[in-house]
Design a protein around this nucleic acid. Structure first.
Lengths: 179, 179, 179, 179
DNA sequence: GATGAATGAGAGTTCATTCAT
DNA sequence: GATGAATGAACTCTCATTCAT
């Protein structure tokens, strides 16, 4: 791919995230193009469809999160690692507001359930359970469900850091091995 | 208001809920009108705007849920009452799928945070805390945040009853007074 | 159908014929709407698709021509009747220029082959053959082929009346019973 | 012109004919470029405009047909020569379907009237009339009109060989010296 | 000279909203 | 009061054409 094409692709993705965050699902391709400073045709060269653009955003973001998960899985306190990742991903959702629902409504699993992320998260969960930090009867489905729920609510209602901490504290307590 | 106008209002609200549930945000006024068996003009006579129609649905639904909360607050096990109401509202979200995001994306607070519901929920929470069934350091903000989160995720991802139970079990454990 | 809707439908059809004649296949719905003095939405209310509009024009025109054919079939010189109708239809194509190709390219049979017209034309042909005015070995397929050909060329190249007469004279001589 | 440029020009013309035949008027430059195995820019270097490309195709084809006409004019039965050429050109139109209308709709005279072909055809006509095979009162305008008509209809409606023969038989009979 | 990425006007179509019937 | 025909802005997407690489 040519250098300019690559640069434009990046600009489009960035702009699309921002516009999606502002306008939600109703975001128009024209708005994305204007923010990116390119013509609409340029977007369509890279992403044949509006939905394809959305999916590309998800994929991009998922990849970055998966990397962070892998890092966390390699060292330190297993329980802490899982909770840290959980909190991090929710914080992410808050920052890049509105984007989760846009995507999931577009038929894309919200990031947590996205295939690439399942593996890394499962690793974190299993490690935490082996270390006795998390109840052994908690499975991936409910963990992902809770994660998605927190992401959705955080971004849609704009959880501030304090609220996020308090809400997640409840969830983490529920996940912890009960004495 | 004339009798037929009142009947029409009810039919429109009912149809709007169903169409919203089916088509999500993209629901068109025409579709609502057709299902209700009225002309689009008739809708506009009652609801000046699409958004006004949505808000009316929320209000309608909120009112009914508030009634249920009040009933629950009057008798029985206080802890059980809170959790029952919590679960009930999430189940509701699953059934009337897609409608939460449609509304919240339209600028309407998801039902849980809606003013009319705050009071009844607070009553349930305070009672449960007084009875020692729920941790005293849990406040309304995080309770509502968790409730919204569960509703959003449940309806957007179609939580089945089993998943709902397991996910809520974690949250409820986190809310319960820790030994 | 309401009176105003009917009036608009007629205006749209008329405008569409004219625009099609001017711009050919590339005619835009917006151009039709502007000439008709209505909004584009008004067109779409009556004709769900650009192609549907085109087909409606064909149907309209076919119906009118079929009526003329029926009239001709009822009296007078059978040979003359066939040739008169043939010439009339070609003249028609010249006047309402470009519309034939627009339609046929849109997948619609050029008027001559259009189902409603087959019957009336066959009647004229058979009568002319029985009267000995037209060669008995000429069949409908080639008659329609020649008719279509003349229509297409007449409208696409704007045959003037003199040219039309001379070209059709050749065809008619070829159709006539050879001595 | 460099050798590779010349080769590209040929490839583009060939591809353009094929694409035009397949997609008709809606043929896109991109499709032509892809089939030719060149970039779109390469086409634009040789043909400043889409229409220029179309005209070049016509010119190319006309030149080849003119050569055939000249060959036919040199020997054999004059009447037969005219009719043979007439039939040949119509068959051509059938094979390279859709292309005639694409061109003529683009404002290009259908091949028969194209300047380069007028001369050769006139030669054939005059020879046939001198030999007494064709009526002396038939002029070039109506001959070209009939030829165009047959070409247009043949390609637009996909005349099969049998239909072509029967339709042309009528025209040829009309052209022949009447006893 | 060749390439194909970028452009942006313009295409068909939809839909919230208005208003004559 | 009810109706649904009319409106036209806005949408997604295409494609002839230009120009940096």
């Amino acid at each position: 791919m040519r250098a300019d094409a690559q640069r434009n692709r990046a600009r489009v993705l960035e702009a699309a995230e921002e516009v999606l965050a502002r306008d939600g699902l109703a975001a128009s391709m024209r708005a994305v193009a204007e923010l990116a400073g390119v013509g609409v045709g340029t977007i369509y060269r890279q992403f044949p469809t509006k939905e394809a653009l959305y999916q590309a955003i998800v994929a991009d973001r998922t990849r970055r999160l998966a990397e962070r998960a892998a890092e966390l899985a390699e060292g330190g306190d297993p329980g802490r690692a899982l909770f840290t990742f959980f909190a991090m991903i929710v914080e992410h959702a808050t920052t890049k507001k509105v984007f989760v629902d846009a995507l999931s409504a577009a038929g894309v699993d919200p990031k947590a359930g996205s295939p690439d992320l399942r593996g890394p998260i499962e690793t974190l969960l299993v490690r935490a359970q082996r270390a006795g930090a998390v109840r052994p009867d908690v499975g991936m489905p409910e963990l992902l469900a809770l994660l998605s729920a927190a992401c959705l609510a955080a971004q849609q209602q704009g959880w501030d850091p304090g609220l996020r901490d308090r809400a997640l504290a409840v969830v983490f307590d529920g996940l912890r091995t009960q004495p």
